[in-house]
């Protein structure tokens, strides 16, 4: 098996995730796309772990899964809060950062 087939697979998933983050209006969908990006990174780590016969990659993949769980928890809490305050989670309407 080639190393590249895994890396390219990951690259495709990553780009799709980026596309999702950039085009979706719904906050929950943006979070889902971010999960896609994180998974693509994990595939890379595990592929390199297998390539180098080294466990570190796998350990970091596990850490990323844990961090992703934390990220989803906080992210959804923020989305809920936005929804409660504005009755909408359309992120194109969230422009309070406008200078």
């Amino acid at each position: 098996m080639f190393l590249n087939q895994f890396l390219l697979f990951a690259a495709v998933l990553f780009s799709i995730g980026v596309y999702g983050v950039l085009t979706r209006r719904n906050g929950v969908l943006v979070l889902m796309s971010i999960e896609l990006i994180l998974n693509a990174v994990n595939i890379n780590l595990i592929a390199f772990a297998a390539y180098n016969q080294d466990l570190s990659g796998q350990v970091f993949a596990l850490f990323i899964i844990a961090v992703a769980a934390a990220e989803v928890g906080v992210g959804l809490a923020i989305v809920l809060l936005i929804y409660r305050n504005r009755r909408s989670i359309d992120i194109t309407e969230q422009n309070a950062l406008r200078g």
């Binding site: 980026v18 983050v21 950039l22 992120i91 194109t92 969230q94 422009n95 309070a96 950062l97 406008r98 200078g99």
Partner: peptide, 12 residues
Amino acid sequence: SGQVRQYASLMF
């Protein structure tokens, strides 16, 4: 613009 999405596009 304050649009987070736009900032994200610029960043990526």
